[in-house]
Design a protein around this nucleic acid. Structure first.
Lengths: 229, 229
DNA sequence: AATAACTCCGGACACTCGTCAAGCTGCGTG
DNA sequence: CACGCAGCTTGACGAGTGTCCGGAGTTATT
C-alpha cells in the first residue's frame, strides 16, 4: 500500500521534515537519521540544480517538471517525493542560486590595490559574466519578473536582490576607499545603474549583437571613472 | 464549407493582408475595401488591447488565449481569424503598447523652465507611474525577459527599449540644456540607471512596500540633482 | 432576389501539464 | 530469513492548452 502524507510518524515524504529544523541532536541513532537527512538534502540539491539548468535553457514559462526530470538522473515522479509541488521546487532552486550569486565580484573588489585596478577588474568581470554566464542571468531576470506576479517567489527574489545590491555597494565602497573620494550615488542607485546596464547588455548580447560585451566593458569603465572624478 | 488558407484569391483570413502594405489606392471600389480593412484593423486593435490587459494581470506564463478572449467581446475562436497564432497576437499587442509607452515624460520635459522644475517633475512622474501603472510596467519587464528566450519577441522588444532610452535621454539633454552643464553619463548609462531603479522600485511596490513610490521619488531627485552639480 | 463573401461561434482535436497512486527493488533491521 | 520501509518508476487522471473546423448569421455584391 502506498504511503500517504502523515501516515507514519517516523517516516513519510522527506520534504515535510526537510522544512523543519535541521539540527543534529546527540540522541542515540541520530547518526543514521542524520545520514538519511543528508542524502535527502543532496538529492534535493541535485534536483534543484537540474531545475536551474532547465529553467535557464527554456525559461520559466516553457519549463515543465518532465523537462527538469529529463535533465536529472531521475524520472518525473520523484519530484513530488522531494518537493511539495512545482513552486516548492523552483523556490528551492532559487535558494540554491542565491548561495552563489552574490559573491561574483568580491575577489576583484578585495584584490584591487588602486582605483584603476578596481575599475578595470570590475569592467572586465562584467563583460566576462555577460559572455560566459548569460543563460543563468536571463533566468534571474525572468524569475524576478515572475515574482511580480507570483507571491510565492517574492521572498526569495527580494533577498537575492538585496544581496546583489550589497555586493555592488561593496564595489562602490572599495572604490571610494581606494580613491579617497566619496561616490555620489546611494546603494540603491548604484545597484540600479549596474543592474539596468547589465540587463540591457544581456538583451543585446542574446539577440546577436556581437559587441555587447565589449560595449558593456567600456561603459562600465567610463561610469566608474566618472564616479570618483 | 470553410475557407482554407489561400483558397480564394480575393478574400481569406484578414491577417494575411493586414501584414501587407495598407496603402490606399485610387482604384474603383477601393473605398469599400478600405472600410473593410479599417474594420479588421480596429478588431485587431481591440483584441490586442484585451491581450495587454490580460497579460498585465496574469503574466505571460499564465495567460491563455481563452483568458484573453474572455476579456474581449468575442470568443476564443475569433483569435485565429485575426491572428496567425498566439505569438502573432502578443507581438501585435506589443506594437500597440509601443505606440504609447515612450512619450510619458515628454510633457514634463518640454514644460519645465528650470532645472529644479524638470527634476521635480520627472521625480514626481516616476512615482506617479509606479503607483498608477504598475501592472503595465510589470508586463513590460516580463515580456522583455521573455524576449531573451523567444526569438519572435526580440525585434519589438529591442525597438521599445531603444525608444525608452531615447525618451530618458531627452530628459537628460533638457536637463543639460537648462542647467548649462553637461551630464556625465551616456544615453545607455542614463537609461540603465533609471530603468534599473524603476524596476527595483516596482518589485518593492508590488510586494507591499508602501514607501516604494516615495523612495523612488527621493532617489530620482537626488540622482538628477547630482548629475548637474 | 439570389449568391457570394465576411464574421463569428462553439465544439473538437491532439497534446501537455501538474499531480498522485500503485507497485517494484534493494537494503538494513528485527 | 522475513519483514518493512526508503527510494524510485511507471502509468494514469483530469484539467487546460493552442489550434483548427464546420456551420450559422450577417452583410455586400450581382
Amino acid at each position: 500500500m502506498a504511503r500517504r502524507l502523515g501516515e507514519t510518524a517516523e517516516a513519510g515524504k522527506p520534504e515535510a521534515r526537510a522544512q523543519e529544523a535541521p539540527k543534529r541532536t546527540g540522541r542515540p541513532r541520530a547518526l543514521a537519521v542524520d545520514r538519511a537527512l543528508d542524502k535527502v538534502e543532496s538529492r534535493r540539491m541535485a534536483l534543484a540544480e537540474a531545475a536551474l539548468k532547465t529553467l535557464a535553457e527554456l525559461g520559466y514559462a516553457r519549463t515543465s517538471l518532465r523537462d527538469i526530470a529529463d535533465k536529472s538522473e531521475f524520472t518525473h515522479g520523484v519530484l513530488h517525493y522531494y518537493f511539495k509541488d512545482k513552486t516548492d521546487l523552483i523556490c528551492c532552486a532559487m535558494r540554491q542560486y542565491k548561495a552563489v550569486c552574490a559573491t561574483r565580484y568580491d575577489q576583484v573588489t578585495i584584490r584591487a590595490g588602486t582605483p584603476g585596478e578596481l575599475i578595470e577588474g570590475v569592467a572586465a568581470k562584467l563583460a566576462e559574466t555577460l559572455r560566459e554566464d548569460a543563460l543563468n542571468h536571463r533566468l534571474w531576470y525572468d524569475l524576478r519578473a515572475q515574482a511580480m506576479f507570483e507571491e510565492a517567489f517574492q521572498a526569495d527574489v527580494l533577498e537575492i536582490d538585496q544581496r546583489l545590491e550589497k555586493m555592488v555597494w561593496r564595489i562602490g565602497a572599495r572604490l571610494s576607499e581606494l580613491s579617497g573620494s566619496s561616490i555620489g550615488l546611494s546603494p540603491a542607485a548604484l545597484y540600479g545603474l549596474f543592474d539596468g546596464l547589465f540587463q540591457r547588455s544581456l538583451l543585446r548580447h542574446l539577440t546577436g549583437e556581437a559587441s555587447a560585451a565589449a560595449d558593456l566593458q567600456d561603459e562600465a569603465r567610463r561610469i566608474l571613472t566618472s564616479l570618483v572624478r
